[in-house]
Amino acid sequence: MENIILDVPLMYGDHHVLKVRDALVDLEGIEELYASSAWRQLMISFDPKKIKQVDIEQTLADAGYPTGEGETPVLVKASDIKRDPKWAELGVRITETNQADIDMSGEFRRY
């Protein structure tokens, strides 16, 4: 039995988990499978006599989930001076501090 951990960058939500599991779960030789959308990783126990890692990776790629380095698409990038370009679109933004927040500030503000 062999255990591997594969990075699957596009598996960022649980609807992808369902698709990834659908692609792999019936493959002969896959013994255990944990698909984590939180970590975007797959933990697989498989029998190398029945299936090779490369085949698993190919199945994933065919299903639209290539393994390895990469990121989910980020449609909005920060500008060179680290400004959020949306600020210019949204105009002046006013934020008001809730009195309850001020009252709670201090030890409660852990994050």
Partner: peptide, 20 residues
């Protein structure tokens, strides 16, 4: 929806406001 998106907070200098 695209117009409502923001970039991710920078690793070092970040302004992670709730509004974004």
């Amino acid at each position: 929806a695209k117009r409502m998106l923001h970039p991710m907070p920078d690793v070092n200098v970040w302004t992670p406001y709730l509004g974004e």
